[in-house]
Design a binder for these strands. Sequence first.
DNA 1: CTGCCACTGTGGTCTAACCACACTGTAATC
DNA 2: GATTACAGTGTGGTTAGACCACAGTGGCAG
Lengths: 232, 232
Amino acid sequence: MRTHELVLQWIEKQLSDGDLALGGRLPGERAMAEQLKVSRTSVREAVRILEAMGVVRAGVGSGKDAGTVVIAEPGSALGSTLRLHVATRHLPVADIVETRVLLESWAAERAHVGVPALEEAAELLDQMDAAPDIDTFLALDARFHVALAQAAGNSVVSAMMASLRGAIENYAGELTGNLPDWDTTCARLRAEHRAILTAVNNNDGGKAAELVAAHIQGFYKEAGVGSDHSPN
Amino acid sequence: MRTHELVLQWIEKQLSDGDLALGGRLPGERAMAEQLKVSRTSVREAVRILEAMGVVRAGVGSGKDAGTVVIAEPGSALGSTLRLHVATRHLPVADIVETRVLLESWAAERAHVGVPALEEAAELLDQMDAAPDIDTFLALDARFHVALAQAAGNSVVSAMMASLRGAIENYAGELTGNLPDWDTTCARLRAEHRAILTAVNNNDGGKAAELVAAHIQGFYKEAGVGSDHSPN
DNA sequence: CTGCCACTGTGGTCTAACCACACTGTAATC
DNA sequence: GATTACAGTGTGGTTAGACCACAGTGGCAG
């Protein structure tokens, strides 16, 4: 077993045993190295991996943002991993879109009416009506979809949803260039968003799921991502 | 931007541009360091992250297994990430099980009859009938479920399915200790597996999905993982 | 009381050396 | 001539030690 894996194992045990909780701080790199009888380099490699996994965040200096603290951001971490695998051509974009449809439809169907996430979603829709440019709109759009997924109350689905969205975020931006008329598309997307949210709030899960599926598939189809097409 | 992120960016670009493909070799660590004008340390940190993501595999020595080669194993990588987040208590086991049900039901419903994965699944069932002990059975069980997921032809769903299974693999082993009578449970599981595969091969996707959902939920319920219970 | 500044501890980076490993080519041996 | 032994080469794995930038802390001078 390689040295940095030993460090990883030790840290994972600290987490499992509850000796290290969310928001907690890892010992300094030098201290951990001495304690585990390994070099600082190995400790750093382990920390880097955890950072890439979204389990910790490293900050220099002193104060609250300093040190290596335990966080919980699986979404961005999974997103980076998927993005890299898309780059290797191993994961087709079409499969990602299809999975997104699956997860988001499921979430829309089971969204709990009245949770804060839905209120946030409503606010985001208002902000999208006033979005000055495409990029702002897309950023708000991403947050809307994540909020919708959170309303179902399954943190794994939320995280995966966010990661799928993140993995193809670059495409979404590029794809808007393929659209014949952004203003028209944007208006349609806004209307579809409101219809989805209305269905959810009316406890009409089945309809919400259908609308979400059509919404996502419609966008990518219009932008030119077919079922057997693998851009990049 | 930190130095190792620069290296990551460079490697990702090589992948995106197709200059580096699956099975290809990265330049040696020392060569990359010199080329990018960074230290070998930073190169190594980047490689470690890619290794954790399942994008590359590093091997010492010479020959075919040596050097850092591009692979595509998103499943194990995502699994490690999820496992760590389960350790932080941020991802409840119940949510993982629920997501597994979602993905596997979907895959069972859309499995393409006649693909090699289904033949492999059938062989695995035969092997499970002759499994000498629990661990062997569970290992084969894992492969059966992955094969089933692959039959749907969506690599993202397959990868996520495998990762979810991997993230709670330890639990599956521990949970068998909670069962009142393993032999009885094992016999039931084997029968359920065959029923699922039969439904799939009969093109009865709806029934296959139902059976899969009941199969998974039944096991974890019997083993004591409730909807609001979060062991470890 | 105010403002400056050295101090301290954090992660970030680099250099240079050594190790274990696995193949390769050559040379000694049978 | 075929076989065996072994030094050579290049790979990642690991370590020690140094220096940097950063951000709070606290004392000191004004």
